[in-house]
């Protein structure tokens, strides 16, 4: 996609492409990570900010209510790195998800299979897998993380003057 694509990156009427960032992208990106939509609110996109806040929070809420679990890094499962990174994209909401699903701020399974901590965590995860809507919950949680990641990138593009 180039900057000439009118549908996705068109500038607002009267706006010109800024040769330098109009605002530092760090602040809106950080705000977007802290709370879904907050970066857009900071950039003056109130309507979008409200919509994003509601949609991401609803997706996150459905995920938790459906038995979704925050991912833990397991060196034996490389994809778990991606899933955990995706969860972390939710910012402080990831803390909520971990406290509600795992019961502690744990991000990594102990690598030693005989480790009592690993066994306790694995038993806890097995209990959660029995939840009938566990897979749905995980899908909703991961999708909420991806949404917030896209919002972060969108806030970056807006602050750099690439998008209206």
């Amino acid at each position: 996609m180039t900057e000439t694509a009118p549908d996705l990156v068109s500038a607002p009427e009267g706006a010109t492409a800024a040769p330098y960032p109009r605002v530092s992208p760090i602040v809106p990106c950080l705000l977007a990570w802290l709370l879904p939509g907050l970066g857009h609110l900071y950039l003056g996109r109130k309507g979008r900010a409200g919509a994003f806040f509601l949609v991401v929070l609803l997706t996150f809420g459905f995920g938790l209510a459906s038995g979704g679990t925050a991912s833990l890094i397991d060196p034996q499962q490389p994809l778990s790195y991606l899933a955990t990174f995706d969860n972390l994209a939710l910012g402080p909401l990831d803390v909520v998800a971990r406290l509600a699903s795992v019961g502690a701020l744990v991000y990594r399974l102990p690598p030693d299979e005989g480790d009592p901590g690993r066994l306790a965590l694995m038993n806890q995860l097995r209990e959660r897998v029995r939840h009938p809507t566990y897979e749905y919950g995980n899908t909703f949680l991961l999708t909420a993380g991806l949404m917030n990641l896209l919002l972060l990138l969108d806030a970056f593009d807006i602050s750099m003057g690439r998008k209206g």
Partner: peptide, 20 residues
Amino acid sequence: LNLVVFSVLVAIFFAFLTQN
């Protein structure tokens, strides 16, 4: 119902992300 809720949420998200 899970499919519908998921689809609607994702559709609303991308609608606001890509359209003005």
